[in-house]
């Protein structure tokens, strides 16, 4: 197992280099000159002379050949220097250091709500198969799957503000500073973010449980006179959970990337909102680091899912 983990970790390196190269080149072949965009200002109303553009390009190192720029960037990253934002002129590591915990809190809370709601409701729908409740729950799941998270977010905001005239407190408080305020600020973004995953998990749990409930060993358990609770919780649910956990693992990855939209909608100062702001202002160094961050996250989540899979099913061995 250790060897497998080491191999997987080593595979991170070429994957990240490939990602870095792709994003670096893609950002530079996009139309539009970064120096001009910066000089044009946020609303594009800035005026400037051509010499200003040339000077800024030189300042930002954009006048150098692209391979030199890439080499410099990779070398800086290897040395732990993530660079400086073109727009804020501040250290990227300082900015992202503040944003990562926010996004992780949001994603964790969202994952918690997804697991806490999706799995039990999925079990309930399976147990009450074809009842009115099942139909309603399935409808809810399909609604979740069909609703983009940004739209769910907007509905939540509008609902809270127009019906209840209430909104979460503005700004952001870390969980370890003020947990109550932090939850007030994050619970609605987390629910909106997890709406689709909720639906998916609900459907997955229901389907898997129904399949397991028809298996011979469940019938055997029942014939032994075990109570329904024990049959379901001890025998059926545990076995049905395996693919659900795998799906949940991938959904955690999706939740983390989904923060890009939800953070912008709910004004949560995390990595996702930062990426949107960086994209809008063509802040290339920031965008590059954000993409690398998401790539690392995806790799780690995939690895964790694989490891969890082996833990849940002792028959699985990684050589």
């Amino acid at each position: 197992m250790k060897e497998y983990i080491l191999k997987r970790l080593l595979l991170f390196i070429p994957t990240l280099i490939g990602t870095a190269l792709a994003i670096f080149i893609l950002l530079r072949v996009l139309p539009g000159d970064v120096a001009e965009i910066i000089l044009s200002g946020p609303a594009g109303q800035g005026s400037f002379a051509h010499e200003d553009v040339l000077r800024l390009r030189e300042d930002l190192g954009l006048d150098k050949p692209i391979y030199v720029q890439f080499g410099q960037w990779v070398w800086d990253m290897v040395r732990g220097d993530l660079g400086e934002s073109y727009v804020t002129r501040r250290s990227i590591s300082a900015q992202i250091k503040n944003q990562i915990p926010v996004t992780l809190q949001l994603a964790a809370l969202s994952a918690l709500t997804v697991a806490a709601v999706g799995i039990p409701i999925g079990i309930l729908a399976a147990v009450r198969r074809d009842s009115l409740l099942d139909v309603i729950l399935r409808g809810w799941a399909i609604l979740g799957l069909a609703t983009p998270s940004f739209f769910a977010g907007l509905l939540v905001i509008l609902g809270l503000s127009t019906i209840f005239r209430w909104m979460p407190p503005v700004g952001f408080s870390h969980m370890w500073v003020d947990p109550v305020v932090s939850i007030q600020q994050l619970v609605f973004p987390a629910l909106a973010l997890g709406f689709a995953s909720n639906g998916l998990l609900l459907r997955m749990m229901r389907t898997q449980l129904l399949e397991v409930l028809g298996d011979d060993y469940v019938r055997t358990a029942r014939s032994k006179g075990l109570s329904n609770t024990i049959v379901i919780w001890r025998h059926a649910v545990r076995n049905a959970l395996l693919p659900v956990v795998t799906t949940f693992g991938f959904q955690v990855g999706a939740l983390l990337s989904g923060t890009v939209v939800i953070e912008a909608v709910f004004s949560v100062p995390g990595v996702g909102g930062g990426l949107v702001a960086a994209l809008l202002s063509r802040d290339l160094p920031m965008i590059q680091i954000y993409i690398i961050y998401f790539a690392v996250l995806a790799l780690v989540v995939n690895l964790l899912v694989d490891l969890t899979y082996a833990w849940l099913d002792p028959r699985i061995r990684y050589e």
Binding site: A116, I121, L124, V127, R128, I183, Q184, V187, N228, T229
Partner: peptide, 30 residues
């Protein structure tokens, strides 16, 4: 028992949500 399981399952699931919502809405802000 079947109902019991459903209720427990539902209650367990909703408890977290209610707790979070209560916390979220407990602000004195209006």
């Amino acid at each position: 028992m079947r109902n019991l399981i459903s209720k427990r399952g539902l209650a367990g699931a909703m408890l977290v949500i209610v707790l979070l919502a209560t916390l979220a809405c407990s602000s004195g802000d209006d």
